[in-house]
Nucleic acid binder design. Structure first.
Lengths: 209, 209
DNA sequence: GAGTTGTTGCACTGGTCGGTGTACTTTCGG
DNA sequence: CCGAAAGTACACCGACCAGTGCAACAACTC
């Protein structure tokens, strides 16, 4: 499992592969195209990765990790000290929605990955899910629980609430735009997020308001 | 646009193509494999459809229409006469979730389609969206509006409420299972749907209960 | 039953692509 | 400055695949 070859080449390959896989999808992406994009010899790719499949998996997991980290930072920024709950949740989900545009290659690759879901070895798939989409909303739960402790939310189950928040906001935008592949006007995006946060609060805000 | 060739052959081709596209994805699916699956000569496929892309589009749109029709029927069954709102919504969403298992080839194909979203001509994509996923939840809105008229729901905007219902129930299952590609235990499915309906009602039920 | 239309099987083309072999050059640590 | 490790350029293999051409065959129509 120890990585062979020069690290900077490995980086270039991963970056190039992310772009090409995102642009062309898994099957259409050619190893020659990836080599060109990474400005690396095709032979070097095979010195770092056993085959196309392993390269794809490496790129997917790395990207998932990066996005998860970015979201974690957003949670710390917006959800630790709450002034106006609705505004803070809205600000969080807006920034979260913006990450779609900040990692366009990764999310394009996610579309490719989901199409291959039945052909990806289960352990690899589970690892990606664990690193990426699963923790993305599971990590939200403790923040919501903390907010609930202050009496700002009524939560029977923080994880379910986190899932519902996700579904009502970011997941709706993701679904409408196919992970950012189709355009969605800022106004429309904002309306979705506002409505979603609003509905979430109606479902989870204490009766005494 | 008038269709050439014998209709029963066209049917066989569409059915075979749906299976193979669903199993192998767009790029991996071979026209020879489709011909075998449809028990038809490859030459006949090209007599009915200009090329692989057009065949794929035809299959996608037809499948989307079938699913949309099935869901419409479920709405009529469950959402016209309401006895217990929570139970009726739950029964509806359960049956709706079951459609994922009833059209496995179609939903596998949808995964392939979403991966190709950037490569599908916009008019074709728009047509599929209009026939399939869009109307799927937009058609729910009038049913909810009708229920609201009886005072069982408080809706500012029926379409938004329909979208939220969708997101909180079926969309969550779809996301977790990747359109049915990964297994999800009936208990887990039921928990998701129950929780979703419950949250929906907390957000949209009149204060006087 | 003649003619048209559709279907079949098969060979074939032109192209793409994953992966390898090899001989040469570059990089870098000691 | 030397030697090993890594990278490069390029030709190459085998497999696969979309789409076509063609000749024989089957099935409807009038």
């Amino acid at each position: 499992m120890t990585s062979t070859g020069r690290p900077e080449k490995r980086r270039a390959i991963l970056d190039g592969a992310r772009r090409v896989f995102g642009r062309d999808g898994y099957t259409r992406a050619g190893m020659d195209a990836i080599a060109d994009e990474a400005k690396v010899s095709k032979r070097t790719i095979y010195n770092h990765f056993a085959d196309k499949e392993q390269l794809f998996q490496a790129v997917a997991v790395e990207g998932g990790q990066q996005v998860t980290d970015a979201i974690k930072r957003l949670m710390d920024v917006h959800l630790l000290k709450i002034l106006d709950l609705e505004e803070d949740l809205l600000a969080f989900t807006r920034d979260r929605a913006a990450t779609i545009g900040e990692f366009p290659d990764h999310f394009a690759l996610v579309r490719a990955l989901e199409a291959e879901v039945t052909r990806i070895p289960r352990p690899v798939l589970d690892r990606w899910i664990a690193v990426g989409p699963q923790t993305a909303h599971e990590r939200l739960a403790p923040y919501l629980a903390k907010i609930a402790e202050r009496g700002l939310l009524t939560l029977d189950d923080p994880e379910t609430a986190a899932l519902h928040f996700d579904q009502l906001t970011i997941a709706t935008v993701v679904r409408r735009t196919f992970y950012g592949a189709l355009p969605l006007s800022p106004e429309e995006t904002d309306r979705i997020l506002r409505d979603g946060v609003h509905a979430f609060l109606r479902a989870y805000r204490p009766a005494s308001s």
